[in-house]
Design a protein around this nucleic acid. Structure first.
Lengths: 256, 256
DNA sequence: CGCTAGCTTGACACAGGTCAAAGGCTGTGG
DNA sequence: CCACAGCCTTTGACCTGTGTCAAGCTAGCG
């Protein structure tokens, strides 16, 4: 097996995508194979790169193999709001169907590696009526549906954070969410994980100013709720944080 | 044609549903007929009624024929955040597929009339592989997809409002959004519409306190941006409001 | 005709924003 | 190997948008 980007095998590169989709719904051997094939055709982008412009149509699903990104919108006066933070295994944009002219753009927050599905390698079953839309032609319709459902839940959580929670609660909630999502793809242990985000990014996500994010993090440290140095996070009291943030991890519909 | 709820014909009762879906994608005659049939089987609920509980599964799509509702979540200490305001023609909850255990509940804000689709009256084409999920069995897959896309855009708008806009901007933005959506279903003219929402509901939607919503509305009045008495809204300077709120109406994918 | 739900207003408190400056880091070039 | 540049973090002083509390007011409704 030939060495790739920093010497990883295709399977290793697509690990996060595999784990995430498999958690949403167990992958069939055929599907697993197609995921692994993603590792063959990837492209890298530097921090700050625009992964998907404002009105870009989303034809085929693109996944993050490694690195972090975000979906965001800019106001005319320069204010920025980040809708969601994307981690390895996440899809960039949405694949529900043709319409998605999302009014958001996606931007890399770190060095990032992406892979896009080849469209219709599944022609045998694609003879089904196109009523299904393009989403189905590649055989992951149910995964996409569940992924969309999960993401919608995350958006709703975000709305609650922004509308009704204090800076302290918001920050705790975000940390718990990231921890849960990273654990899903095997990139977090019980209480620690790596979060390569600047305080500016946190601010634009949490609807706060940079300065206040800093102060809030200090407060969490003083309260012995977290340790944080560089991008290394340790949650010292997960139960307490969960109460403070009223955090409820997403429920994955089990099975089949 | 027999008289119904306050003497309306089925076609009149389902007007909003028809107009909304037809705007998303022109309805075929057969689809139009099925929509009209909705008017035969409706049920009413009083203000405050729970239309859909917290973890309720969403099997078949339910539409609002008349009245307003909202999707919301409550925090343990009683704080409330409203995710979206539902008007006639809107679907309650989502119909993307089986998983939608949405962590939100839907509540009637006024007296409301609902109608739910009968499941599989379209059996001829439902012989298609069930890979499509239940969403397709009733023949509106593309409408549902576009509706979901539209709603996702509204959620993103809401996140920007809550995260990065001032009370004044948020309020202006909401008024413009409601105006656009009401116009879509033929319930608004160029600048006026009816908004049967208390200031408490506005507050819980906009992430503000009741008192501050009141003050903000006063300010909009003083600035001669709006008139508002009871539930009657007049927007006095739509262009200006649009600039203030940085409002961008949703783009409906045209055609077919 | 009194009650209640909703609206309005003032006085005051506080979470969070803004401004400004000083410290780290880290990478790069001399 | 040092020095500088740039980005990020941290902190203090101060300001303001929004929340809280409390009290009237209004109007529809039983």
């Amino acid at each position: 097996m030939p060495a790739r980007e920093n010497g990883m095998s295709p399977a290793a590169m697509t690990g996060a995508v595999f784990r995430r989709l498999d958690a949403l719904k167990p992958l069939s051997p055929g599907q697993a194979k197609r995921i692994e094939a993603l590792g063959e055709r990837f492209e890298a982008a530097p921090p700050g790169a625009t992964l998907q412009g404002d009105g870009d149509a989303l034809v085929r699903p693109t996944f993050i193999l490694s690195g972090w990104a975000c979906r965001q919108r800019l106001l005319p006066d320069g204010r920025r709001q980040i809708f969601s933070i994307l981690i390895p295994g996440d899809a960039v944009g949405f694949c529900l169907g043709p319409s998605p002219v999302s009014s958001a753009s996606a931007v890399a927050l770190t060095k990032i590696v992406l892979a896009t599905f080849e469209a219709p390698s599944y022609s045998p079953s694609s003879s089904a009526p196109l009523s299904n839309g393009p989403s189905d032609s590649w055989g992951f319709a149910e995964h996409i549906r569940r992924s969309a459902s999960l993401e919608e839940g995350l958006l709703l959580d975000h709305i609650v954070r922004l509308g009704r929670q204090t800076a302290y609660e918001r920050t705790a909630h975000l940390l718990l969410e990231l921890h849960w999502r990273l654990a899903l793809i095997g990139q977090a242990d019980e209480r620690r994980f790596t979060m390569p985000l600047t305080q500016e990014v946190l601010a634009d996500f949490l609807g706060l100013s940079i300065v206040h994010v800093n102060r809030t993090l200090q407060q969490l440290r003083r309260d012995r709720m977290i340790e944080l140095s560089g991008s290394h996070v340790v949650m010292l009291d997960v139960p307490q944080l969960t109460v403070i943030a009223d955090y409820q991890p997403p429920v994955l519909t089990p099975g089949t």
